[in-house]
């Protein structure tokens, strides 16, 4: 034989999925929601998304090449996913320079400072978003009017999100039944015709994306289901106790970042637990914290904070929540 044969330990076959493919499936699953925001917010959505993705990928390249001095791995798509998710968490009239700061914080602080892909304890896109929300509260909470602001970017007509309306109203003592008149109907909430961050509005599109991810086995059902179920049950109890002072559970699920968070942000690989049991605890925690912030906290929306707080618990969950080993508990029959 002229060539040398290869010797390596088993297995000698390999599955077809790789990191790149998984990341591109996530991007694909985010596209329906992206289309919804383009339909409702038009030019703003395009600008914000483009700037955010280019900035995230660019910062990752620069940091890897010049600071970490390693071979840049931008082609794996993870920076693009972060950029897309960051854009999804921003209002579509946000100035470009704020997006750049957000991208730098997301990639630089949220991801690269921990060693890059797979080593970050917190979801990078959320780190960027929360940093911006705290630093630039005005710009981060001025939400363009859907449909009418299609052709406008910085000068878009703005208004409050449904969650903010409800929160303000309840604290002013206005009954919920009256407040519901001020917000779009359930159908509009379902398709995404409301004020809000770019990617969080299209409930239907996000669910379609979630189904794509589940079908491709990119994510498992545990995290989204546990988050949604917890929020549904928790707000349902509150609503049942006093329907005039609390919004109903369907409203809570359809508004704000719940679906985006549950399907795309909380399921981020590096920052979610490794075992199904851990995923349940993590999801329930996110659900509870979200509702607590929404009902009793200072902010009308709490999904990002909830996910970041639970991210911090993931190492502990991984350490103490172990899968039930095969043959550990013998229940023969």
């Amino acid at each position: 034989m002229s060539k040398l044969i290869t010797v390596s330990p088993s297995p000698h076959m390999h599955g077809k999925d790789n990191v790149k493919k998984l990341m591109y499936w996530v991007i694909l699953a985010l596209l329906p929601a992206f289309l919804v925001s383009v339909i409702f917010f038009g030019i703003g959505a395009l600008i914000v998304t483009a700037v955010s993705i280019v900035a995230c990928v660019g910062f990752e390249y620069l940091i890897q090449k010049y600071l970490m001095k390693v071979k840049p791995t931008i082609s794996d798509g993870s920076a693009a996913v972060t950029g897309l998710l960051l854009a999804f968490n921003l209002p579509t009239n946000i100035p470009v320079w704020i997006i750049l700061i957000g991208a730098l914080v997301a990639i630089g602080v949220g991801k690269m400072s921990f060693g890059g892909l797979g080593n970050n304890p917190f979801n990078p896109a959320l780190v960027g978003r929360v940093f911006l929300l705290i630093s630039f509260p005005v710009q981060m909470t001025s939400w363009p009017e859907p449909v009418v602001s299609r052709t406008q970017y910085a000068d878009a007509v703005t208004g409050p999100t449904p969650l903010a309306i409800i929160k303000e109203g309840i604290s002013d003592g206005i009954p919920v039944s009256e407040l519901m008149g001020q917000i779009p109907g359930y159908f509009d909430l379902f398709i995404g015709r409301m004020h809000g961050s770019m990617g969080e509005i299209g409930a239907l599109a996000l669910i379609i994306g979630g189904i794509i991810l589940l079908a491709r086995k990119v994510i498992t059902w545990h995290i989204p289901v546990s988050i949604l179920a917890t929020i549904f049950v928790f707000t349902g109890i509150l609503w049942g106790a006093n329907p005039e002072a609390n919004a109903d559970p369907i409203f809570h699920i359809l508004t704000g970042g719940v679906l985006l968070g549950a399907i795309f942000m909380a399921t981020d690989y590096a920052t979610s637990p490794m075992t199904p049991k851990g995923m349940w605890i993590y999801g329930i925690g996110i659900g509870i914290i979200t509702v607590v912030i929404r009902i009793w906290g200072a902010y009308p929306e709490g999904v990002s904070f909830a996910i970041l707080i639970m991210n911090a618990f993931v190492p502990i969950l991984n350490k103490y929540i172990k899968p039930k080993r095969f043959g550990e508990e013998v229940q023969n029959g």
Binding site: L4, I5, T6, V7, S8, P9
Partner: peptide, 8 residues
Amino acid sequence: KTNHYDGA
């Protein structure tokens, strides 16, 4: 060399 090792 008589073969090529390709493991960890």
